[in-house]
């Protein structure tokens, strides 16, 4: 019962959190105009994401009855995937750092780091999705 209540509240909380985060980010860090039009894209994306999630969950419910979407096997597979992902990422980052140092690179742009982090985040997310489906 507790889990069901949490599931109901988790999406509105994520959406409200994203909207607040973006508005605060634009307000505090956008030094020129405080242009809040940038903030519209994020809640729009969140709402669109929610609609897609809702439609998919409806379809799944019709297809597989009242079965849960996550169980002990999924948890185990997710744990195994995250352990493997963690080791691969640590190895890859270490290798990239050593290669960069050997090439004589001594500094790196924060923008490049953000892009790398985003790519990593997307890859882990997609991997988790595949691991859950197996």
């Amino acid at each position: 019962m507790k889990n069901q209540k949490l599931q109901v509240w988790i999406w509105p909380l994520i959406i409200v959190g994203m909207i607040l985060g973006v508005i605060m980010g634009v307000y505090f860090f956008n030094d020129s105009t405080n242009n809040l039009s940038l903030a519209i894209s994020i809640p729009f994306g969140a709402v669109l994401g929610f609609i897609i999630f809702y439609l998919l969950s409806k379809r799944n419910k019709r297809k597989s009855g009242n079965t849960p979407s996550f169980d002990e096997r999924n948890t185990l597979m997710m744990q195994q995937f995250l352990v493997i992902a963690q080791n691969v990422i640590m190895l890859a980052v270490g290798t990239a750092l050593v290669i960069s140092y050997a090439k004589g690179i001594t500094s790196i742009n924060i923008e490049v780091l953000i892009v790398c982090w985003m790519i990593l985040f997307i890859l882990i997310g997609l991997g988790a999705l595949v691991a859950k489906r197996l």
Partner: peptide
């Protein structure tokens, strides 16, 4: 599906 529903696990499991 019935077994999965009653035991609250996925059909894949």
């Amino acid at each position: 599906i019935k077994l999965a529903e009653d035991l609250q696990v996925t059909r894949q499991t």
